[in-house]
Amino acid sequence: MSQTTDAAETETPLLFGRVLDGQGGARPIAWAEALEWQPAAAGEVLWLHICRNRPGVLEWLEGRLHIPEPTAELLVSDQTRPRAFREGETLVGTLRGINFNPGAEPEDMISMQFWCDGRRLVTLRRDPLQIPREVVALLDRGDGPPDAGATITLLAELLIARMSQSIVDMNDVLDVLEHDDPEEHAERMLKRISTIRRNCLGLKRHMAPQHEALEQISRDAPFWFEEHDRREIAESIARLRRYLDDIDISKESALVLQDEIRARSLASSEHATYMLTIVAGIFLPLSFLTGLLGINVGGMPGMQDPDAFWAVVALCGLLFTALIVAFRRLRWL
């Protein structure tokens, strides 16, 4: 039944709608019914998940829900920096989650705006977001949140929990790179490390403001946001703080590994240059000697002596040996 209801909303802003029964379950609701919805029993809460870039969303927010124009524009805007504030007895906010859509990078965050007055909860997004669907699945099984405050809390918790997998993935890549051979794969390793550092910076830049938004919810949420919801938000704040610390550690680890690879690559290059210099220093006198004896002018000694060639070879061998001994005594070799 829920799939039929959700599929029927393709021409409306509604992605899905549920009426929470206050016991962890919910029933689907269509767009037309949602427009005229009133609670039929104590504890019922209407949750509508909206695609905010479809036509008519702004007008519906202002006309049906009587949301002030600045707040309604915030709910449908692309200015998605995490924030939260109380407006009378309503709670308004923007949260971000990691983009797990195909082809997306972890730092490509997806925003979700929400508005709630305790009886009605409206969440809005532009790009596909998996978290609301996971909460709906819990509600359809009868194991979901019982009210609006618990739903907001669960959404925030799941958005934050998804960070953990990205951090674990980045740390796994760093562990593999630490055991790789930088002399053979230096360029590939540096490229992957740069990607990890960029991901860390993106996650930190986008998720740090979410910490402030959750604290704002915990402090200033209206009366319908119950005490156990505040405790759950506090746990989410602590978890987010730990994740932000883990991101800093991953970023520093990537930086140390990057510096180590560059230092080893530079040392290898300098060693090769040094060895070439030593070889040039050894063969330069020999080249000078053979070049001098090879000039095509009269009067060159040994031109008529058949043993002169072997004498020159012996002289070159002695000179080569003397240069090796001298370089070793100078500790150049």
Results as ranks from 00 to 15, higher is better:
residue 51 C to L: 04
residue 215 E to D: 10
residue 169 D to Y: 00
residue 298 G to Y: 08
residue 68 P to M: 01
residue 292 L to H: 07
residue 15 L to H: 15
residue 271 H to M: 13
residue 40 A to L: 09
residue 227 E to S: 12
residue 138 L to T: 07
residue 303 M to L: 11
residue 252 E to K: 13
residue 201 L to M: 07
residue 256 V to M: 06
residue 2 S to A: 11
residue 155 L to Q: 08
residue 145 P to N: 06
residue 134 E to A: 12
residue 194 S to A: 03
residue 11 E to H: 06
residue 197 R to S: 02
residue 274 Y to R: 07
residue 7 A to T: 11
residue 115 W to D: 09
residue 234 A to S: 05
residue 170 M to N: 07
residue 156 A to L: 02
residue 277 T to Y: 01
residue 48 L to M: 10
residue 237 I to D: 00
residue 20 L to P: 13
residue 329 R to A: 04
residue 29 I to T: 04
residue 289 L to K: 04
residue 250 S to E: 13
residue 136 V to I: 09
residue 201 L to F: 03
residue 84 A to I: 04
residue 232 E to M: 09
residue 90 T to Q: 15
residue 108 D to R: 10
residue 298 G to V: 06
residue 41 A to C: 07
residue 328 R to A: 08
residue 26 A to I: 13
residue 238 A to T: 05
residue 157 E to L: 08
residue 1 M to N: 13
residue 307 D to G: 13
residue 186 A to P: 05
residue 307 D to I: 14
residue 86 R to T: 10
residue 111 S to C: 07
residue 217 I to N: 02
residue 173 V to T: 15
residue 127 D to W: 01
residue 328 R to G: 06
residue 267 A to S: 14
residue 7 A to I: 04
residue 40 A to P: 14
residue 175 D to E: 14
residue 184 E to V: 05
residue 281 G to T: 13
residue 325 V to I: 10
residue 223 F to Y: 15
residue 96 R to N: 05
residue 67 I to K: 00
residue 91 L to A: 03
residue 253 S to H: 00
residue 223 F to D: 15
residue 6 D to T: 12
residue 55 P to F: 00
residue 17 G to C: 10
residue 153 T to N: 01
residue 67 I to L: 02
residue 235 E to G: 12
residue 81 R to M: 10
residue 243 Y to T: 09
residue 139 L to V: 10
residue 10 T to F: 11
residue 244 L to Y: 02
residue 33 E to N: 03
residue 64 R to I: 01
residue 117 D to I: 03
residue 223 F to A: 14
residue 44 E to F: 02
residue 10 T to L: 12
residue 26 A to H: 01
residue 138 L to S: 13
residue 134 E to N: 10
residue 72 A to R: 11
residue 160 I to K: 11
residue 159 L to H: 03
residue 59 E to F: 03
residue 27 R to T: 04
residue 208 A to I: 09
residue 60 W to Y: 03
residue 165 Q to N: 10
residue 6 D to K: 13
residue 101 N to S: 05
residue 128 P to S: 15
residue 137 A to E: 15
residue 292 L to A: 06
residue 205 R to T: 08
residue 138 L to N: 09
residue 173 V to L: 00
residue 73 E to A: 02
residue 299 G to D: 07
residue 14 L to T: 12
residue 208 A to F: 01
residue 66 H to C: 13
residue 60 W to L: 14
residue 207 M to C: 05
residue 93 G to K: 02
residue 68 P to C: 09
residue 57 V to A: 09
residue 326 A to E: 11
residue 253 S to Q: 01
residue 114 F to Y: 04
residue 319 L to M: 14
residue 272 A to H: 02
residue 325 V to N: 03
residue 84 A to G: 11
residue 111 S to T: 05
residue 77 S to Q: 09
residue 108 D to N: 12
residue 4 T to G: 01
residue 189 M to A: 06
residue 35 L to V: 11
residue 104 A to I: 05
